[in-house]
């Protein structure tokens, strides 16, 4: 039984904001299916009552004072932007 269908791969690609062609979707489906099938070996493990680990350190929230600090200038912030206009970053239209 396959773990992930071509339709699901296309849906996941959309969620991740990736464009995939039909040819790519076919290839990725096969590869992802192999990887997910392999990963299902974890089902052998009895994890009843096992706490999930998100992090290996015993850290609580680390807080600092919320103070304004000099970081970068507007000019700096714009210098690597693909397109700018009037001191702002320009993007294509959001509404159709």
């Amino acid at each position: 039984m396959s773990r992930i269908s071509e339709e699901q791969v296309k849906h996941v690609a959309h969620l991740a904001r990736l464009h995939v062609s039909d040819e790519e979707a076919e290839r990725f489906t096969k590869q992802l299916d192999d990887i997910i099938s392999f990963a299902e070996q974890l089902n052998e493990l009895d994890t009843e009552g096992v706490e999930p680990t998100t992090h290996v350190q015993d850290l609580k929230n680390v807080m600092r004072k919320d103070e304004p600090k000099k970081w970068i200038t507007q000019e700096d912030a714009l210098k690597n932007a693909p397109e700018t206009q009037d001191g702002q970053i320009r993007v294509p239209s959001i509404l159709e």
């Binding site: 990963a39 994890t47 999930p52 680990t53």
Partner: peptide, 29 residues
């Protein structure tokens, strides 16, 4: 792209517990 899609899938609604949370529990072990 493969890893972004695998990760998006493992975190997506309906699969989170089976894949992501399961892997976090395995990490504990």
């Amino acid at each position: 792209k493969r890893r972004i899609m695998l990760g998006t899938f493992a975190l997506s609604s309906g699969y989170y517990d089976a894949y992501y949370k399961k892997a976090q529990q395995a990490r504990t072990l």
